[in-house]
């Protein structure tokens, strides 16, 4: 393991060292540590960051992505090599809210400005390591509540609803479920069932079809992401209940745009993933330029998207 890490680190260092010589000395260098680039959401985020670098032109971006959602090792290696490279700032979307704390602490100790975005580091782990770090990111719970409230408003009190959850154990899945539950309480909805479909289209289709059999009177569905919305909407079509069951989602991916337009999807939530890394970079550069250090939770924009927003 150690050997593999050494190789990975040296390969990384090698690829990073080469272009470093050509950078202008006065341009700050920002190291961006991303999550899985197999995920469209993060892929877009990275592209947004690259566009941002070209637009601003006053800093140099070095980005590292992971092979999969659970590839924590790559992120740790990336941070360590950024420390060796003496970058000015590191902007990181942690794949694990605890495992990333020690390397981030080392980076902060080395005098690098670190900004944590997308997923917040664990408070207890930060405290134990003596690390004080702000979090820049959206409020998933608030976003889910916005979608849930839209559903509650459309259906009215007493409406029978179900929740399709994301991966059990994932922080954003848990937050989104809490947000949906907030809407259930606030809107006095009747929650019949809540199940995971692991963020997946096919599984959501299967799970929701079966829920609909068990509860033929379902009036509304809250899905924790839009990939699952695709499966839910197909299940509603197959059951011949189009227009009788309202659906809300999360993420505002391109594939749900036609569904919004045809009103098969009532609302989804945009957390401006494409801008998220870019925003975090702006915040980091502000501190590097001598600005005030960030504190607490710097909330980023979220917006409810409905058919009115689709041209």
């Amino acid at each position: 393991m150690k050997f593999a890490r050494l190789i990975a680190a040296s390969v990384l260092a090698g690829t990073l060292a080469m272009p470093a010589a050509s950078y202008a000395a006065d341009k700050p260098v920002v190291g961006l540590v991303m999550k899985s680039l197999a995920n469209e959401f993060f892929k877009n985020m990275l592209e947004g960051a690259k566009a941002h670098e070209a637009k601003r032109g006053d800093y140099t971006l070095k980005a590292v992505g992971m092979q999969s959602e659970t590839d924590v090792e790559t992120q740790i290696n990336a941070i360590e090599s950024f420390i060796t490279q003496k970058v000015d700032a590191i902007v990181v979307a942690p794949s694990d809210s605890r495992a990333l704390v020690p390397p981030i602490k080392r980076a902060v100790d080395a005098g690098i400005t670190v900004v944590n975005f997308d997923v917040a580091l664990d408070d207890k782990a930060k405290q134990e390591a003596g690390l004080k770090l702000a979090f820049v990111g959206p409020d998933n719970r608030e976003g889910a509540k916005m979608a849930g409230d839209a559903l509650a408003k459309k259906l009215g009190a007493g409406a029978k609803v179900v929740i399709i959850e994301g991966n059990p154990g994932a922080d954003n899945a848990a937050q989104r479920k809490l947000g949906f539950m907030d809407s259930v309480t606030a809107g006095k909805l009747d929650l019949l069932d809540s199940r995971t479909a692991h963020w997946e289209t096919e599984e959501a289709n299967t799970v929701f079809s079966n829920m609909l059999t068990a509860h033929p009177d379902i009036q509304g569905v809250m899905a924790a992401n839009d990939s699952m919305v695709l499966g839910v909407v197909k299940a509603i079509e197959a059951a011949g209940k189009t227009g009788k069951i309202e659906v809300v989602g999360f993420d505002n991916i391109p594939a749900v745009q036609p569904l919004l337009k045809e009103k098969k999807l009532l609302a989804t939530v945009d957390q401006f993933g494409q801008l998220m890394a870019a925003n975090a970079i702006d915040k980091a550069l502000g501190v590097v330029a001598g600005g005030k250090p960030l504190e607490g939770w710097v909330k980023t924009d979220i917006k409810l998207v409905t058919s009115d927003d689709v041209k």
Binding site: E200, T201, E202, N205, L230, A255
Partner: peptide
Amino acid sequence: ARLNIASPII
């Protein structure tokens, strides 16, 4: 045909 999408993560 069943789900009307194709994606690299299915």
